[in-house]
Amino acid sequence: MRPQYHLAAAGKMYPNAWRQVNIFRKSKGKDLPDWPSWCFLPMAATYSIVSEGGAMAPERLGDVAKLAALIAWRYTQGIYKFEPSVYESISTTVVKNDIPVDVLYRLPEWGVYIETPGLDEHGFFAHLEYDINTHRSELRLLIDSEEALYPIILHLGQHTVTEAIDRALSEAAKQGNFNKQNLPIEQMIEHQSKIAQHCISLLLYLCSEEPDITRIENELPQRPSPKKVKGDWKLFPPQKAKTWRIGEKIAEEIAKTASQDQGGTHKTPTPHIRRAHWHGYWTGERAGQDRKFIYKWLPPLIINATSN
C-alpha cells in the first residue's frame, strides 16, 4: 500500500526518527512546552529531526511536512476507503458556508490516510498541527500524487471551513507552491481548489456525528493509549495498517433511492430527489463551554415517492 511505502521510505531516510519522536513526546509539558491532545507532535519537533538539530539543508526543507504527516499516521495506520457511491456523493457535496472550522479538530485519529479514486492523486494524509511558538492551529493535508507528496495547509481559527480553504489557496498562490506542472497561476489555483474541496468534504464526513464506519474487531478508529513497559509508558505502532470501510450502510440507502427513481407511477405531489447536503445546528448556551456544532451528511433521498 502506498502509505506504508511512504512510511518505510521515511524510516530509511531518517532512521532515528521514531526514537526521537518518543523522546519529544515524553518531554511534552516538561522539558518542552505543552500542546493540545489533538496534535500528536508539533512540527517544530519534526523540523529538529530533519535538520538533526542544526541548520536545515535547503533540499530537506520539504521533508518536514512529509515526515510530520507520517509521524502522526504511524501509530494508527488507518486507511479510509469509501464505498464508491458514497464517495462520489460526499465528495461532490458543496461544503456549507456555516460549518465552523472547529469541527476539523474531531479527526478520529491523530493522522489519517484517505483514498481518492475520484482524483488524479492516489489519496492524502491529514493531521492537525499546533505551533508551540505562535499557538496557531492548522489542518495539514499531504497529497499523495504520482509525482510527489505535497502539502495543502488550512489555518484554523474563528472562521468557517470554506473561508479556511480560500485562505489556504490564496497563500499558496502568493508563495507559488505546488505548481509542479508550471500552470498559469489562475489554473493552478483552480486545480488546488478542486483538490482541497474534494479532500475537505471527505474529512468533514469523518469528523461528523456518527459517521458510517464499519467496525474492525468490534472497534472504531481511535487514538491509542500508551502501554507500560518496564516502568515506562510507551506508544507502539500497529503491526499492519487497518483499512476502514466507510459508508456501507449509506450505500444501500443510495442504491434504494436510485432504484425508486427509475420509473413507476407516482401520485401527486410530484416526487423528487432531495440532494445530498450537510445539515448542522448548535447545541448548548451561546457562551457556554459545552457549546458544540452538531452536523451530519444527509444522503440523497426520494421525497413523496410511492411504492409500486
Rank of each mutant, 00 (worst) to 15 (best):
P269C: 05
K256Q: 10
R286C: 07
P238E: 14
K227R: 12
K230C: 01
Y205I: 01
H266W: 12
L203E: 00
E210I: 07
H279E: 07
A196K: 05
P221L: 01
Y205C: 01
L206S: 06
A196W: 06
W244H: 06
E190T: 15
H191I: 02
G264Q: 13
W282N: 04
Y281N: 08
W278F: 10
Q187E: 15
Q187F: 07
Q197V: 08
A241C: 14
H266Y: 11
K230E: 08
M188V: 03
K267A: 15
Q262R: 14
P271K: 08
P221I: 02
A255N: 10
A251I: 05
T243K: 03
P224V: 06
G280Y: 09
E210S: 11
L220G: 00
V229P: 00
A251H: 06
T268C: 10
I254N: 10
Q197A: 13
K240E: 13
S193P: 00
K242M: 04
K227H: 09
T270L: 12
D232M: 04
E209Y: 08
A258D: 09
H272Q: 06
E190L: 13
Q239C: 02
G231E: 02
W244Q: 00
G284N: 07
E252M: 07
E285N: 12
G263L: 12
A196Q: 05
P237Y: 02
E252K: 13
Q187S: 13
G263T: 14
H272V: 08
T270P: 11
Q260T: 04
Q222V: 01
H277V: 08
K228D: 00
I273G: 06
L202C: 02
T268E: 14
I273T: 11
I250M: 15
T243L: 03
G263V: 11
E252F: 06
T243M: 07
E209L: 06
S225K: 15
A276F: 11
L220K: 02
Q262C: 09
S201K: 02
H279K: 10
E209M: 08
E190S: 15
P224Y: 04
H272S: 15
I273Y: 05
W282P: 05
I250C: 12
E248Q: 15
Q262T: 12
R286E: 15
E253R: 15
L235N: 05
L220Q: 05
P271R: 13
Q239H: 03
P226H: 10
R275A: 14
I254R: 14
W233Y: 09
